[in-house]
Write a protein that binds this DNA or RNA. Sequence first.
DNA 1: GCTTGTGAAGTAATTCACAGCC
DNA 2: GGCTGTGAATTACTTCACAAGC
Lengths: 213, 213
Amino acid sequence: MGKHESIPTPAVRRLSLYLRQLEAFQDTNLRTVSSKQLGQALRITDAQVRKDLAYFGQFGQPGIGYDVDELIAKLRHILGTDQTWPVLLVGAGNLGRALLSYKGFQSKGFDVVAVFDEEASLHGRKVGENGPTIQPMGKLDAVVKDTQIRLAILAVPAIVAQSVTDVMISAGIKGILNFAPVALQVPRGVSVANVDLAVHLEQLSFSIGSSDA
Amino acid sequence: MGKHESIPTPAVRRLSLYLRQLEAFQDTNLRTVSSKQLGQALRITDAQVRKDLAYFGQFGQPGIGYDVDELIAKLRHILGTDQTWPVLLVGAGNLGRALLSYKGFQSKGFDVVAVFDEEASLHGRKVGENGPTIQPMGKLDAVVKDTQIRLAILAVPAIVAQSVTDVMISAGIKGILNFAPVALQVPRGVSVANVDLAVHLEQLSFSIGSSDA
DNA sequence: GCTTGTGAAGTAATTCACAGCC
DNA sequence: GGCTGTGAATTACTTCACAAGC
């Protein structure tokens, strides 16, 4: 377990950004990239880029830079997205359905294979053209245990977020992408990533507000 | 301008979390809260809570703690959400429409008053029951200048994200909540908050992957 | 020439610990 | 007893600067 203890959390977050930018460079047929180029595109210093990558290995060549294809492969391996992760979605409301139709997941190594919702009228419906069928919450535990899904997207109202979380965790979920504006309480060994839209807007409001009247 | 120079960015982010948690405490009719209580709910040390709040003033009373209602009011004022911000939405695809129907914005001080999309077949349509009408991109500049909107939500495909951003900025937008997985290039004075769903899932994938095989 | 990888230096953020107040 | 606010200490992160390699 935990062989990444000494790696700064911000460095791991930037790894995803590097990967995203490298994929963009790849689309323009760039073969090789320097830490300076990568940094300029992302508004990060070149030293930062090199240090971040160096936490995970020696990927570059002095005088040349980094091979784009190779670095993409390495980063995907580090992040664990060189394989496809089956993902669970709980909550098939507006947000949940929008997330399902979001193309980005598939290409990045995530595949929503099961959808659950409390609302009985939705059960049995397919989401999208050949998407998964919406199932009742009661089935969640069995499905997770059967299929070994470890990642979940939580798109339910705040009031039920914690109780749904408890069910998911007892079923074996280890990582939760949480869209509910609540601080989920989870045991050690379970990771949560929060996406709170209001929080982001508040940050912008603060930034703008502090630059003038 | 900029009287917040010395305040750590992470502290401002946590301000939003404190506000969210305080609103939850308010719903349970709690009158007063200590830094310890607030911290435990959010998995933050009590010292951190006190230090963060102290950047902005002296809101607590020794021996008692913080008055919930009062602290909520103060935080809203600091974040600039004691008034309602008119917000622009560009991109009325699945994600854009889901965001529009998201109830959270309204109650947190944000009001989507205008929606733009490139797709001609959408123009003139209303989003939701009595939501705003989708307008062509060509109208964006005039609307922003007329209405003084300064916040925008960007929910368009990655390929057009930068060009739309340029248009918005020249119209006067100062803050962008960006859902496109690209690093937007913006001039000084414009703030960007990125919500990249794949990035968050990658972080979870990394966390899970590093805890065992 | 240009570039990486990295120890050393510097900066930023967090936690400690306690005086002062309720 | 409990609690805040804050300087001091600590830890974490970033940038510098340069030896070594292309």
